[in-house]
Simulated assay, not measured.
Amino acid sequence: MAPVPSHSAVVDELERTAEAVLPQSVADFVRGGAGDELTLGWEREAFGEYALRPLVLGGVDRPDLSTTMLGSRVSLPVAVAPMAYQRLVHPAGERATTEAAGRAGALTVVPMLSSVCLEEVIGAATGPLWFQLYPLRDREVVADLARRAERAGYQALVLTADAPRLGTRRRDLRNGFALPPGVEPVNLPRRVGTVAEVDGAGESAIALHAEATHDATFGWEDLARLCDRTALPVVVKGVLCAEDARRAADMGAQGVIVSSHGGRQLDRAVPSLHALPEVVEAVGDRCEVYLDGGVRHGTDVLIAAALGARAVFTGRPLLWALAVGGADAAVDLLARLRGELEEAMVLTGRAGLTDLDGLLRRRRKDWAC
Rank of each mutant, 00 (worst) to 15 (best):
Y134I: 09
L107Y: 06
H90V: 01
A100Y: 06
A106T: 11
R137A: 10
P82H: 05
A84D: 11
L133G: 03
R137T: 08
R87I: 11
S115L: 14
R103G: 12
D144K: 10
H90I: 03
T108G: 09
T160E: 01
A104F: 00
V158R: 00
R151S: 13
Q86C: 05
Y85M: 15
L129E: 05
A156D: 03
E94Y: 02
Q155G: 15
A104Q: 00
V116E: 02
T126Y: 02
M83H: 12
G105M: 11
G123Y: 07
P128A: 08
L70N: 04
L76D: 09
D138S: 12
E150H: 08
A79F: 10
E120W: 07
G153M: 04
A101D: 10
R103L: 14
D138T: 10
P77R: 03
Y134D: 00
L133C: 02
Y85W: 15
L159N: 02
D144W: 10
V141W: 02
A96Y: 11
R103Y: 02
V89F: 03
G93P: 02
R87G: 05
L159A: 01
R103D: 10
A104T: 06
S75R: 13
A156P: 07
D138F: 07
V109N: 11
G105F: 09
S114R: 01
P82I: 09
L145I: 01
M112T: 13
V78K: 05
L113G: 00
